[in-house]
Amino acid sequence: MDCDNIGAYIHSEVRSADIPLTFEDRTSAMYVFELIVYLYTSLREQETILEQIMKESSGFIPVDDQDRGLCVLAGT
């Protein structure tokens, strides 16, 4: 999310890969596997963040009122 523009997202391409269709293009398979590893690592990070958010929303981890989403989005 874009901190300067509330409700907007920042898009960036970090990896790309061409799927090899022939045996001669087999060297590009490494880029496909690198992309899969990157996506898996990103998914694990998202799961960790979601777990943290769930603990905060259930009250297991205290959150200051000034750090709550409604206060941040309201700009107060």
Rank of each mutant, 00 (worst) to 15 (best):
D2G: 03
D2Y: 03
C3Y: 11
C3A: 10
D4S: 09
N5G: 00
I6G: 00
I6E: 01
I6D: 01
G7C: 03
G7S: 03
G7K: 01
G7P: 02
A8V: 03
Y9W: 05
Y9R: 07
I10E: 11
I10Q: 10
H11N: 10
S12M: 13
S12G: 13
V14A: 04
R15C: 07
R15P: 00
S16G: 10
A17R: 03
A17G: 02
D18W: 12
D18A: 14
D18M: 14
I19W: 04
P20W: 05
P20Q: 06
P20R: 03
L21T: 06
L21N: 08
T22F: 06
T22D: 05
F23W: 03
E24Y: 08
E24K: 15
E24P: 02
E24A: 15
E24M: 12
D25S: 14
D25N: 09
D25W: 03
R26M: 08
R26K: 13
T27G: 14
S28F: 07
A29T: 01
A29F: 06
M30A: 14
M30R: 12
Y31H: 14
Y31G: 08
V32L: 12
V32C: 11
F33A: 09
F33N: 07
F33Y: 12
E34R: 13
E34T: 11
E34S: 10
E34I: 10
L35Y: 06
V37F: 08
L39I: 13
Y40N: 10
Y40W: 10
Y40D: 11
T41N: 15
S42I: 06
L43A: 06
L43G: 03
R44K: 15
Q46P: 00
Q46S: 09
E47G: 06
E47F: 14
T48K: 13
L50H: 14
E51N: 13
E51F: 13
E51L: 13
Q52L: 11
I53H: 07
I53C: 06
M54T: 09
S57I: 02
S57T: 07
S57E: 09
S57A: 10
S58G: 05
S58P: 01
G59T: 02
F60K: 07
F60S: 06
F60V: 02
I61A: 00
P62Y: 03
P62A: 03
P62T: 00
D64L: 08
D64Y: 04
Q66Y: 07
Q66E: 10
Q66T: 04
G69L: 14
L70T: 04
L70G: 04
C71P: 00
C71T: 10
V72N: 03
L73D: 09
A74S: 15
A74C: 14
A74D: 14
A74I: 07
G75N: 12
G75V: 11
T76P: 08
